[in-house]
Amino acid sequence: MDLSAINPILLLASLMVAATPILLAAIGELVVERAGVLNLGVEGMMITGAICGFIIAVATGSPWLGFIGAAIGGAMLSLLFGVLTQFLLSNQVATGLALTLFGLGLSALMGQGYLGIRAPSFPDWHIPLLGDIPVIGPIVFQHDPMVYIGLLIVASVWFFLNRTRGGLILRAVGENHDAAHALGYHVRRTRMLAIMFGGACAGLGGAYLSLVRVPQWTEGMTAGAGWIALAIVVFASWKPGRLVLGAYLFGGVTVLQLNLQAAGVAVPVEYLSMSPYLATIAVLVIMSAGRAPGSLGRIFHAAR
């Protein structure tokens, strides 16, 4: 055992990178759930975003265009979910699960010709001045731009939900869609926009895997990240601030586990891989105050 082999600065730095895909997917799902919709298709939207982003990045040579394509791809798939659940009133749980399975298959089909190809590189930003601060510099200020964009999206979502009129309407729709409808708000329109935002964010998270983390395309490469994102939303009790904490915690576990192994500490992998979910359950029990949005998962029909 040689714990000194673990460099805490590098560990924290790689933690920020490891947390980014699940952070992006989770913030999208948070908005969706605050609007009262439970979309279990995060995994499917992530992987679809991963391949859409990869295809476009390879075709154009620009990772930035790839990310935009990934967001559009994820949003398109979520649109399917939106039409099914909001207009055809299908069951949200079943539709979400179907969306995950569909996304996995669709992405495998789209990615047929893209196996073994390398993505255009996406260099890290070495932020001048800030990046040179000892200790904090390498941890916080020497990452690729998407890490900061992810945090920016979280901050914007917080501001939108808590400080704007639009956010208030979205929360009202999520808490009690009948009351919101009675007040004259467009429940369906609000929810469709939220669902598309969720899809776009999940797509960005998936593209982060295929364009930055791995960076290549392989089938099923999200490997359950979408489910972790769903768990984080509950863990964070639907609050953006706690979501960041949760994402870093969950992302940290994977990095830490490998670091411990390489340092020779024999912690059974199974314990560490189940720990995020155990933490979620524990948080649910302890913080029963973290109440889910009132209309979460319920079908809205104006005439009922």
Binding site: A5, I6, N7, L10, L11, S14, A18, L209, R213, V214, Q216, T218, M221, T222, A223, A225, T254, V255, L258, N259, Q261, A262, A263, G264, V269
Partner: peptide, 26 residues
């Protein structure tokens, strides 16, 4: 030798992670 068990034959994200950790540890 520093050995990391990935418990998978094929999981690119995890394999990349494992490689990064080994590189970080020297």
């Amino acid at each position: 030798f520093k050995i990391v068990w990935a418990y998978t034959w094929f999981d690119p994200a995890k394999e990349a992670e494992a490689a990064n950790v080994l590189i970080e540890q020297g």
